[in-house]
Design a protein around this nucleic acid. Structure first.
Length: 273
DNA sequence: ATGTCGGGTGTTACCCGA
């Protein structure tokens, strides 16, 4: 197939908090933003319930992985969508259940050299530091790092994007009040260490250098958004070759406004060819 | 003051999760 489009691509990640409730807002965002690939989290539906038609009408292919009303991850792409994989090698289960928290696909083979291997990730919340879900979160992150590190070691020039809702605020400035979060998940040292450890395998978080301080999530409760009491928990970790190709990033704060928003907003990165 | 959102069900009243 001939190259139809050169010049890089725009990749975004967005925890949509139910795609069935949010599909109009999500497709409107795609139409006006010029995003070529959108990784979604918390679709909250089974595969057959995902509203594919509105995406396909705009020229996007969709891969979705969802078992039930919890979790659910997807990737929509108008620049190719190949080698789809649900879950990663070694991904821990929650009890007996392999949850729908990771979906990989190769996109952009015609617009970026070698394409980009995108993983749409919904990292477990952890609930409370004393809750078994917290140990599950740490184990899940450790397994992801082990597997993703192996990908980079096997293919050092691979362009790999680990994107999504990491449910970790890596720095104190990434929450509206460290007092409020004292003793809570998302800010604990083991979670922050787990996030930072990806750097040892060559991954770089590539949005902060372009957007030094901006929240990506505001709770629906307590007027958190009007008061700008949010958290920065949605990130893009890029392999060495991909990090070199990233030319910009943006956090779409305005998507938290208006009628029926998700509690998260899209995070966009621009990738050169 | 868990005061808001989702989706679910033994559904029109509550459950769980975030």
């Amino acid at each position: 197939m001939a190259r139809v489009r050169l010049g890089g691509m725009k990749l975004a990640t967005w925890n949509v908090n139910s795609i069935r409730t949010r599909v109009d807002r999500v497709t409107a965002f795609l139409e006006r933003s010029g995003v070529d690939v959108l990784a979604m989290q918390e679709t909250k539906c089974r595969d057959e319930q995902f509203p594919r038609a509105p995406f396909e009408a705009l020229g996007y292919e969709v891969a979705h992985h969802g078992h039930n009303q919890w979790n659910g991850v997807a990737i929509a792409s108008r620049v190719g969508l190949d080698d789809v994989a649900a879950g990663f090698e070694g991904m821990p289960t929650w009890g007996d259940a392999a949850e729908a928290r990771a979906l990989g696909a190769t996109v952009g083979r015609d617009v970026v050299d070698g394409g980009v291997r995108v993983w749409s990730l919904y990292v477990p919340n952890g609930r409370e530091v004393s809750n078994p879900h917290y140990e599950y979160k740490l184990a899940w992150l450790a397994a992801l790092r082990e597997t993703a590190g192996g990908w980079v070691r096997a293919e050092p020039e691979a362009r790999i994007a680990l994107v999504g809702d990491w449910n970790i605020a890596p720095e104190d400035q990434d929450v509206w009040s460290m007092e409020f979060f004292a003793g809570a998940t998302h800010v604990s040292l083991p979670e922050r260490a787990a996030f930072a450890a990806f750097a040892e395998d060559g991954f770089t978080e590539v949005t902060r250098r372009f957007v030094p301080q901006q929240f990506t999530y505001w709770d629906y409760q307590q007027l958190r958004f009007p008061r700008n009491e949010g958290m920065r928990i949605d990130f893009v970790q890029a392999s060495p070759a991909l990090a070199r190709a990233v030319t910009g990033a943006a956090i779409e704060r305005n998507e938290r406004k208006g009628k029926g928003p998700s509690d998260h907003v899209p995070v966009i990165v621009e990738i050169a060819e």
